Simulated scan of single mutants.
Amino acid sequence: MKQTFPKKEHLKRKKLIDALFTEGQKVSAYPLLLVYKTSALPEEGVSIQAGFSVAKRNHKLAVTRNRIKRIMREVYRKNKQDFQTNGLTFAFMFIYTGREVMTYEQLEKAMLKLITKFNAAQNEIDD
């Protein structure tokens, strides 16, 4: 699988995002929270559409929020092949809940923990 994050994998539809927060399930690994939902995606050949969010309440400066989102996207891009979708399509929203700015290495460690928890939750459903 290519380690890219093209436009068609970006979560942009308002209806899908609203449904994600009303009906979605959650998995967390500090400082990341993953809200996910199985759904039919509008794009062909895509198994996951992902969005990234950082609360303005915790990080006042847009520069800081954008830096955190950029790092989160990069960590996701490098590790997205580890998510076990089992042929289903998912909408993901990654939310940064920490108050301090984490380094790339710390976020990657949290993302790997998050992937492990997500895969465990999916395996429970399959069993």
Rank of each mutant, 00 (worst) to 15 (best):
K80N: 00
L16Q: 12
T4H: 10
Q25C: 13
D82Q: 13
E23R: 15
K7S: 11
N79A: 07
T85L: 06
K78G: 02
D18C: 06
N66I: 11
E74Q: 14
K26N: 12
Q81L: 08
A40G: 06
T89M: 06
G45H: 08
H59M: 07
F21W: 06
M1C: 08
G24L: 03
N86H: 15
Q25G: 11
V54W: 03
F90E: 00
G87V: 05
V75P: 00
T64E: 11
L41S: 06
F83N: 00
K15L: 13
N66S: 14
R77N: 05
R70F: 05
R73Y: 02
F5I: 06
H10N: 01
K56M: 11
Q84H: 10
L34A: 07
S39Y: 02
R65F: 09
P42S: 08
R67K: 15
P6F: 13
E9S: 01
G45Y: 07
S39A: 14
N86T: 08
R57G: 11
Q84V: 09
K69I: 09
P42G: 04
I68R: 03
F90M: 05
A50R: 01
L34G: 01
L11W: 03
A19Q: 14
F21V: 11
F21I: 11
K7N: 10
E44Q: 13
A29R: 00
H59F: 15
D82K: 15
L41D: 00
E74C: 13
N86Q: 14
R73P: 03
H10V: 04
F90V: 02
A50P: 03
L61M: 14
L88C: 12
K60V: 13
F52Y: 06
L32Y: 05
L33C: 10
K37I: 14
P6R: 07
R65A: 07
D82W: 04
Y36H: 13
F5M: 08
G87K: 03
T85A: 03
G51V: 07
G51S: 08
G51N: 07
A40K: 15
N58I: 08
F52A: 04
Q84I: 12
L11R: 02
K26E: 02
K2T: 10
V75M: 08
G51F: 05
H10K: 13
K12Q: 07
V75F: 06
S47T: 12
L41C: 09
V35F: 04
A29D: 02
M1W: 09
V27K: 04
E74S: 14
K60N: 10
Y76K: 06
V35Y: 00
K7T: 06
K37H: 12
V75R: 03
E9F: 04
K2C: 08
R57I: 05
G51R: 01
A29N: 02
L16V: 13
